[in-house]
Simulated assay, not measured.
Amino acid sequence: MIRKNSRLLFFLCVTALIACSGEKKKEDAEKGVETVLPANNNEVTILKLDKQIFNHELVSNGKVKASAFADLRFQSAEVITHIWVKNGDWVKKGQKLAGLDKFRLDNKLSQAKNTLEKARLELQDVLIGQGYAVKDFDKVPEATMKLAKVKSGYEQSKVDYDLALYEDEHATLIAPFDGVVANLFAKSMNRVSTSDVFCTIMDTKSMEVDFSVLESELSLLKKGDRVVITPFADMAHACKGSIDEINPLVDDNGMVKVKAKVDGNAKLFNGMNVRVNVHRSLGKQLVIPKSAVVLRSGKQVVFVLKKGKAMWIKVHTGLENADSYTVLDGLQVGDTVIVTGNINLAHEAPVTVILNGK
Rank of each mutant, 00 (worst) to 15 (best):
L123F: 04
L47K: 05
A238Y: 00
L355R: 15
N107Q: 15
A186S: 09
T45H: 08
G131N: 05
V14Q: 05
L355V: 09
V302L: 01
V315T: 10
L319Y: 10
L282H: 08
L12E: 05
G94Q: 06
P248F: 09
V126C: 03
V278W: 02
E57H: 03
C199Y: 09
D28I: 14
V294I: 15
L49R: 01
L109T: 04
T115N: 15
K299D: 13
L220H: 09
N253R: 14
D203E: 14
E27K: 07
W90A: 14
V209D: 07
S6A: 15
K261Q: 09
I18N: 06
K4T: 07
I128W: 00
V315N: 09
L249Y: 14
T317L: 06
F103H: 07
T172K: 00
T340Y: 08
A29R: 10
C20P: 00
E348D: 10
S206F: 07
V126Q: 12
E23Q: 07
K306M: 12
C199N: 08
G88M: 09
V64I: 12
Q285V: 11
F11C: 05
A346D: 03
K223S: 09
A68T: 06
S242Y: 02
G318C: 08
N87W: 12
S297G: 05
W90H: 13
L116F: 07
E245R: 02
V274A: 06
G129V: 05
D234R: 08
D244G: 00
K284V: 11
L127W: 04
A19H: 03
P141A: 11
V228N: 11
G298E: 11
K309D: 06
F211E: 09
T115L: 14
A133V: 11
V327K: 01
V333P: 04
N61D: 11
E30M: 12
V44K: 03
V256D: 03
A236G: 13
V250W: 04
K113H: 13
V301W: 02
D71A: 13
L109P: 00
K108I: 01
M235N: 11
S195M: 04
V227W: 06
I174L: 04
K93D: 08
A186K: 08
V150H: 08
R7E: 12
V227M: 09
V64H: 01
W90V: 15
V315F: 04
D50T: 12
E169M: 07
V327F: 01
F303A: 03
V36E: 04
E208F: 03
G99D: 12
C13D: 06
E30T: 09
E348I: 03
H237D: 09
C20K: 02
N55Q: 07
V315P: 06
I343W: 12
L17C: 10
K4W: 02
L116M: 10
N114E: 05
D251G: 04
A236N: 13
G22K: 10
E245I: 02
K158S: 12
S242F: 00
D210P: 02
N247K: 12
V85E: 13
K358F: 06
T115R: 13
S157W: 02
S6C: 08
N87I: 12
L305H: 05
L37Y: 05
L220G: 02
M1R: 11
